[in-house]
């Protein structure tokens, strides 16, 4: 198993270190026993289905909520005002004042992060120009399109040049051109040594940007490690099938998608592709023209792990003390 430090360079001190976080709201256990590390110079994907506890974890990490148990170390210590000023946060829902001018809102948010007015003005102009919002600076936020508001939110997140960037669904509402621009921005930030935690449902963005991920389901980390390593582990957990008939109702298949006559079948973690092939060959209601192992995509892995309730396919986290996750990973393997 690869160690998380290997992804970011041995000996690097993590920017974020989350240990055994748990949080309940009344009888509902939103998060239970979540642990992970995030290092400088990496984009870390925090994944999970809706209501899995991702956002609650982020909020505890940012001291918006206090955890019931567990600890959070951010930028080398507990979160104080000085460390807060080194964090940029882009929430899933756009947190901007709708009734104010764009430049007024961004200046205010920049100043709250400790910048003086001339510095804010200088940086703001540069960011507005880069993200093609300069001519809209005097408009009220509510007059901007959804995509423009999202870009404005990105500016609010990065204006103070933070060391830790936490973004929740950063590509929401963006067209492909702007998505590419924002991805370039994140790449630059990572190359500059910043830590980026990205929470998203867009698995192809995770594959394109993230070096490591943690998948949270029902409040627990069920998958944690380097993306490539996880994909290797899950190789064979999807097959591509072509032929006549329906391939959707096969045992061991957790998700079936048909595109242009080609079926993409995501398999349960314990399903054997050879068994699937044998079943298909024996069935008389289908004709099989093509059957091949698909390269495991994060999308398939996500569906497999979440839908099957597969537990803690943990990769390379032995130094994090995830004993329970490790034990279950061994069982699954």
């Amino acid at each position: 198993m690869a160690s998380p430090t290997s992804a970011a360079g041995a000996g690097t001190v993590p920017s974020v270190s989350v240990r055994n976080l748990a949080k309940s709201f009344g009888p509902v256990r939103a998060v239970q026993d979540v642990s992970f590390d995030v290092y400088p110079g990496e984009i870390f994907g925090l994944l999970g289905p809706n209501g899995s506890g991702k956002t609650t974890t982020i909020r505890m990490m940012l001291d918006i909520f206090e955890p019931d148990t567990g600890t959070v170390q951010v930028l080398g210590g507990t979160l104080d005002q000085a460390r807060k000023d080194r964090i940029g946060y882009l929430p899933e829902d756009r947190g901007l004042y709708k009734d104010q001018r764009l430049d007024t809102v961004l200046t205010y948010l920049g100043r709250l992060k400790g910048l003086d007015e001339p510095t804010v003005a200088e940086r703001l102009e540069s960011w507005l120009r880069r993200l093609d919002l300069l001519e809209h600076r005097e408009k009220k936020v509510q007059e901007l399109s959804k995509g423009m508001q999202q870009k404005a939110q990105v500016i609010a997140t990065l204006l103070h040049d933070p060391d830790l960037i936490v973004v929740d669904e950063p590509f929401s509402g963006l067209d492909p051109v702007n998505t590419r621009i924002i991805k370039e921005v994140f790449d630059e930030q990572r190359d500059a040594g910043k830590s980026i935690i990205m929470s998203t449902h867009q698995m192809y963005q995770v594959e394109a940007l993230c070096s490591r991920i943690a998948l949270i389901n029902q409040g627990e980390v069920v998958l944690y490690g380097e993306v490539e390593e996880i994909r290797r582990r899950f190789a064979g957990n999807a097959v591509v099938v072509q032929g006549k008939g329906s391939f959707a109702d096969l045992s061991g298949v957790v998700d079936a998608r048909q595109t242009n006559g080609v079926w993409h079948l995501a398999l349960a973690p314990d399903a054997d592709p050879h068994e699937i092939l044998r079943t298909l060959v024996e069935r008389e209601d289908v004709r099989l023209d093509r059957f091949e192992l698909a390269e495991a995509s994060l999308d398939d892995i996500f569906v497999s792990v979440v839908q099957e309730g597969a537990r803690a396919f943990e990769v390379g986290a032995e130094d994090l003390g995830l004993a329970r996750a490790g034990a279950e990973a061994g069982r699954d393997a």
């Binding site: 918006i64 807060k84 946060y89 929430p91 829902d93 947190g95």
Partner: peptide, 10 residues
């Protein structure tokens, strides 16, 4: 409008 989420991280 969730602005509070951004503000309380500052």
């Amino acid at each position: 409008n969730r602005t509070v989420e951004v503000l309380t991280t500052s």
